[in-house]
Computed example of a mutant assay.
Amino acid sequence: MQQLAIFGGTFDPIHWGHLLIAETALHQTAIEKVIWTPSFQPPHKTAALFEHRLAMLQIATKDNSAFTVSQIEAKSRGNSYAINTLIDLSACYPNTRWYWIVGLDTFQTLPRWYRGQELAQMCNWLIAPRFLSGETIPQSELICKQVKQQLQKQSVTIHWQLLHTPLVGISSSLIRQFCREGQSIRYLVPEEVRSYMTFHGLYTRSI
């Protein structure tokens, strides 16, 4: 049975922090490949056009054979829900043990996701701490245990693992802010991604 990880998100835009998380997951777990799945239409936020976010992902991941970018969420042409993504990918990759890479702040909301109780049991969860808000590893572990306890009260079993990622204080929102303010984003994103953003004038104003 192969072991694959889904890394979902808006990636608006992808940055070095995302890439470090995915690389860390490859080396700290038994997964063989990371499948990046950009949301086509995030249900709770507005993002740059899918075509731009997809192109930047493809640029950023092209040199790593363990990374692949999926367009599966674009096929629905509706709101992107994680459980639908997992079901659709399972049809493409049978006989797979699934993992899901997610940031700690997002993992905290899992009990409130669309069909979140069902999804929680369908894969193993790889959690990336969010050091931007000053969390430590023990605090991150405590938050994960609290999510597990919430789900257990609903008779839901979940398996999770905290990734020990490098301390990188980068976020997509920070990059978008810098772009709007005309500040440099060199070394926050891969250089080819930065060139793509500049060429297409992305994030130079509020979307």
Results as ranks from 00 to 15, higher is better:
Leu4Phe: 15
Ala5Trp: 08
Ala5Gly: 09
Ile6Gly: 11
Phe7Asp: 05
Phe7Ser: 07
Gly8Pro: 01
Gly8Asn: 05
Gly8Tyr: 09
Gly8Ser: 03
Gly9Lys: 01
Phe11Trp: 02
Asp12Tyr: 08
Pro13Ser: 08
Ile14Gly: 12
Gly17Val: 09
Gly17Gln: 01
His18Leu: 01
Leu19Pro: 03
Leu20His: 09
Leu20Arg: 12
Leu20Asp: 07
Ala22Glu: 09
Glu23Trp: 09
Thr24Trp: 12
Ala25Thr: 09
Leu26Ser: 11
Leu26Arg: 13
His27Thr: 14
His27Pro: 09
His27Ile: 14
Gln28Ala: 15
Gln28Phe: 10
Gln28Ser: 13
Thr29Arg: 14
Ala30Gln: 13
Ala30Cys: 11
Ile31Val: 15
Lys33Leu: 15
Lys33Glu: 13
Val34Thr: 02
Ile35Cys: 02
Ile35Asn: 08
Trp36Asn: 08
Thr37His: 08
Thr37Asp: 07
Thr37Glu: 06
Pro38Glu: 04
Ser39Asp: 02
Phe40Pro: 05
Gln41Pro: 08
Gln41Phe: 09
Pro42His: 15
Pro42Cys: 07
Pro43Trp: 15
His44Met: 10
Thr46His: 00
Ala47Pro: 02
Ala47Thr: 03
Ala48Gln: 05
Ala48Phe: 00
Leu49Val: 07
Leu49Met: 04
Leu49Pro: 02
Phe50Glu: 00
Glu51Ser: 06
His52Lys: 07
His52Tyr: 02
His52Ile: 06
Leu54Gly: 00
Leu54Pro: 00
Met56Glu: 03
Met56His: 10
Leu57Ala: 10
Leu57Gly: 03
Leu57Cys: 12
Ala60Asn: 09
Ala60Met: 11
Thr61Val: 12
Thr61Asn: 01
Lys62Gly: 13
Lys62Val: 13
Lys62Ala: 15
Lys62Leu: 11
Lys62Asp: 14
Asp63His: 14
Asn64Tyr: 11
Ser65Asp: 13
Ser65Cys: 13
Ala66Trp: 15
Ala66Phe: 14
Thr68Leu: 00
Thr68Cys: 01
Val69Asn: 01
Val69Asp: 06
Ser70Asp: 07
Ser70Asn: 02
Gln71Asn: 05
Gln71Thr: 08
Ile72Arg: 02
Lys75Arg: 08
Lys75Ser: 12
Lys75Val: 02
Ser76Tyr: 14
Ser76Ala: 10
Ser76Pro: 00
Ser76Gly: 05
Arg77Val: 11
Arg77Ala: 15
Arg77Glu: 10
Gly78Gln: 12
Ser80Cys: 10
Ser80Tyr: 06
